[in-house]
Design a protein around this nucleic acid. Structure first.
Lengths: 230, 230
DNA sequence: CGACGGATTGATCGTGCTCAAATCATGTGG
DNA sequence: CCACATGATTTGAGCACGATCAATCCGTCG
């Protein structure tokens, strides 16, 4: 088990708090009990972690940093399916290959477990098997919500939804330090970066949020934001 | 165990062919070996099978007919996440409740298994547990592909993709008998019914497809259709 | 300090939506 | 069996939202 030095750039986030225990976050804890070895690894900003259709060899948990997971069309159009933040598990596949590409958005440290050893553990330990299933089900829930957003919500509703999601997942003391650029946000929300920027400016002018740097955002009126999110 | 008479309207499809065995289709076969009892039930056209946030009590397999699964916004905007056709399994949840509503599009017969008995079987039989996980993973794969469609494809690409998907899933002798109306297709593709209709007309005028009734479609040039689907 | 990438803002354009009307298909009752 | 009613589909005209193209502005890092 490697113990990496946490080089922490401005956009990187604090390591996982063991006291916050969502199903996904508890997962790697559970695997510990099952005698599974988790090692750590660090990816540079913009580095690919795995590619679409590559064999799935590992399951990952973000320790610090942030990851984007996306699909590309042949002409370069990109749809980001999910962002993974400290504590999140990603790269778990039931089939043999990854179906999206994963990249580090900023310098990112992950804990990782061999997929093979997980499969073996699941074959004997029903709790592990249940954990794998519910983790995939959690990703499906997110995808189902996101289909509604992409298919039926307008630009402001999408951006409001994004802000509330990020607030929930990475707010510290009422502030968010977004690790991703406007283009990433656009590619997550099915919008252009300009439309994202305009929506954010509009929210600022209404006093619903405040900036201290383009990626440091403070939500000043979550209730109003929830109204804007259909 | 109810044994319903199959009243088969024009838009309904033939019952499941036991020789075609996708993972999902094999599933109910597998559960048979595990001593699980599957009963049958028939829903009328437009009838709700389960609602969003209702407790998940059963898992379903379409025997004949067709089902739409969707989410609604408060103002009535609807996003259909998936259509389920003969052989397809739906309503499987890892959590306690359904996250989408399911409705019969036409008169539909389903086979069903108590969720509780499935959970019990999964607790002892690793193969069952594996089956549950891979079924949810299959739904996730579809949702990931659909997010790319909803977020980044234009109207013609979406419609071309839809036609190829339906062709693959329900074509008989080169013909498709679509069970759903244009509004359903629109709500699946994140478009209006008018835009769907215009795209289909355009494909007809190019000779890529032929109609015999608005819902009876013959694909005349699948290669060209694949080109149109980004 | 200068250079570079990221973000904002503006002007214009175009795809798909909205509103509306006509046409077609389906099923029902006389 | 036909006439009609009803809902589904098609088609048209105009509009609006978000995309595109372009020009600053800003922040960060060498």
């Amino acid at each position: 088990m490697l113990n990496q030095s946490l080089r922490t750039p401005a956009t990187t986030h604090a390591p996982i708090d063991p006291s916050s225990c969502s199903p996904a976050e508890q997962f790697f804890a559970t695997t510990g009990h099952a005698g599974l070895i988790a090692s750590e690894f660090t990816y540079k900003k913009e580095e690919e972690i795995y590619g679409e259709d590559e064999p799935s060899e590992y399951v990952y948990q973000v320790v610090s940093g942030a990851v984007r997971s996306y699909k590309l069309l042949s002409d370069g159009r990109r749809q980001i399916g999910a962002f993974y933040l400290p504590g999140d598990v990603f790269g778990l596949e039931s089939g043999a290959t990854h179906r999206l590409t994963a990249e580090a958005i900023v310098d990112t440290t992950v804990r990782l477990i061999k997929r093979r050893s997980l499969e073996q553990a699941a074959a004997t330990d029903v709790n592990i098997a249940r954990g794998l299933w519910s983790m995939t089900a959690g990703e499906l829930r997110h995808a189902e919500d996101h289909m509604l957003l992409l298919g039926r919500k307008n630009a402001m509703e999408r951006v409001a939804n994004f802000l509330l999601e990020m607030d929930r997942r990475l707010a510290v003391a009422g502030m968010m330090a977004l690790p991703m650029c406007r283009r990433d946000i656009g590619d997550y929300l099915g919008l252009t970066l300009e439309t994202v920027s305009r929506a954010l400016s509009q929210l600022q002018s209404k006093g619903i949020l405040g900036f201290s740097g383009a990626r440091q955002i403070e939500l000043r009126n979550r209730a109003q934001l929830r109204n804007l999110d259909a």
